[in-house]
Simulated assay, not measured.
Amino acid sequence: MLFSELHFRTGSGPKGSIEVICGSMFSGKTEELIRRLRRAQIAKLNVEIFKPRIDTRYNDSDVVSHNANSIPSTPIENSSSILLLGTDTQVVGIDEAQFFDEGLPDVCIQLAAKGIRVIVAGLDMDFQGKPFGPMPALMAIAEDVTKVHAVCVQCGAPATFSYRTVASGSKILLGEMESYEPRCRVCFNTTAY
């Protein structure tokens, strides 16, 4: 059982918390987010799930993993929209957090202060190996940070970097295996930008 699951179930009442699931592309971040949210639903907790409106790779509204597991969500433009959720919400899931604005950490703090368990998943680094969006701040304020790893397609070592295989200088380029591949530090740095 994760610290936050134990923390939520002990004490005199619901205790808010922030959990972050991070790593490179193809590391299983969304899969882990869906697993935790389904467990909360099985426990009959009221769950709300959000994703950035720009992420339409697999589905316009559902959160979908690379393994095709999915869970219904609400696509939103900015992080402040999350604060409009229902008053009986006990767990909030947020996917692709790196695409949200810099206000997301404050939104998560407000939710946790209300006793809500907040589970956030996102890329910790961009295609250049630099911290991505609000993820560093979220990792700093979280009670629990889980870093998951993919497998380097070059050498088979644990991969922590998302190497972009197509020419584009844009910070945000939605794509899958046609645009990115997971790489370890050594393989990433041998052909880094």
Rank of each mutant, 00 (worst) to 15 (best):
Pro52Asn: 03
Ser79Phe: 04
Met25His: 09
Ala150Arg: 13
Gly28Ala: 04
Val186His: 12
Ala68Phe: 13
Glu96Gln: 12
Ala113Lys: 14
Ala159Gly: 06
Asn189Gln: 14
Pro52Thr: 10
Asp55Gly: 04
Leu2Asn: 11
Glu176Lys: 11
Gly28Asp: 02
Gly129Phe: 13
Ala140Glu: 11
Asp101Ser: 13
Lys114Tyr: 05
Val166Trp: 03
Cys187Val: 06
Gly86Gln: 11
Thr165Arg: 14
Ser73Ala: 15
Ser80Trp: 07
Glu96Gly: 04
Gln110Leu: 14
Ser61Ile: 05
Ile34Val: 07
Lys130Asn: 15
Thr190Asn: 14
Gly93Lys: 07
Ile116Thr: 06
Phe8Pro: 00
Gly86Ala: 14
Leu174Asn: 02
Ser170Met: 07
Arg9Ile: 01
Asp55Gln: 04
Asp88Lys: 14
Gln154Ala: 15
Leu85His: 09
Ala157Val: 00
Gln41Tyr: 02
Gly122Pro: 03
Asp62Leu: 01
Ser168Tyr: 01
Ala97Asn: 10
Thr190Arg: 15
Leu84Phe: 06
Ser162Arg: 10
Arg185Gly: 01
Val64Arg: 02
Lys171Ser: 11
Leu45Phe: 08
Tyr180Cys: 02
Pro134Trp: 08
Tyr180Arg: 02
Thr10Glu: 11
Val153Gln: 14
Phe99Lys: 09
Glu48Thr: 09
Arg53Asn: 07
Gln90Arg: 09
His7Asp: 07
Asn67Asp: 07
Pro136Asp: 15
Ile18Lys: 12
Asp88His: 11
Gln128Ala: 06
Val92Phe: 09
Asp95Val: 09
Glu5Val: 00
His7Arg: 13
Gly11Asp: 12
Ile21Met: 09
Ala40Tyr: 01
Gly13His: 15
Gly122Leu: 07
Glu181Phe: 01
Ile82Phe: 12
